[in-house]
């Protein structure tokens, strides 16, 4: 199947997230995940999207913690786009959010 575009779309959204991230650590983590997305077969993108949602959540929370309301609004838009993409591409379950991805939280620890 010509599914390569799913890889590209995810990379694109992660690029936006990378540009939006406020801490150096988050930028680095998103960049790493983006590289992983770009080197993952389309059929195996599901877990990558799951971790992207986790990271998106973290980027939003960083903005909120720092009181950056404009950044928070922008970040949540990217987060929403990521979730919509994941669901519509069949890579995330409808309604699945970062709070459903418990093990990914363990990864960060």
């Amino acid at each position: 199947m010509t599914q390569q575009y799913l890889v590209g779309e995810l990379s694109l959204i992660l690029g936006e997230l990378q540009a939006a991230a406020m801490s150096a650590a988050a930028v680095r983590d998103v960049a790493r995940l983006r590289h992983e997305a770009e080197t993952t077969p389309p059929a195996a993108l599901g877990p990558v999207v799951g971790r992207a949602v986790e990271l998106g959540d973290r980027v939003c929370r960083d903005a909120l913690t720092q009181g950056e309301s404009a950044a928070f609004i922008r970040d949540t838009a990217i987060y929403a786009e990521l979730c919509e993409f994941g669901v519509c591409a069949g890579l995330l379950e409808e309604g699945q959010t970062s709070s459903d991805l418990g093990p990914a939280k363990k990864l960060k620890a």
């Binding site: 575009y5 590209g8 779309e9 990379s11 694109l12 690029g15 590289h35 770009e38």
Partner: peptide, 9 residues
């Protein structure tokens, strides 16, 4: 190369 891809790719 798809425009949305990173510079690295």
């Amino acid at each position: 190369v798809f425009g949305g891809f990173s510079g690295t790719a």
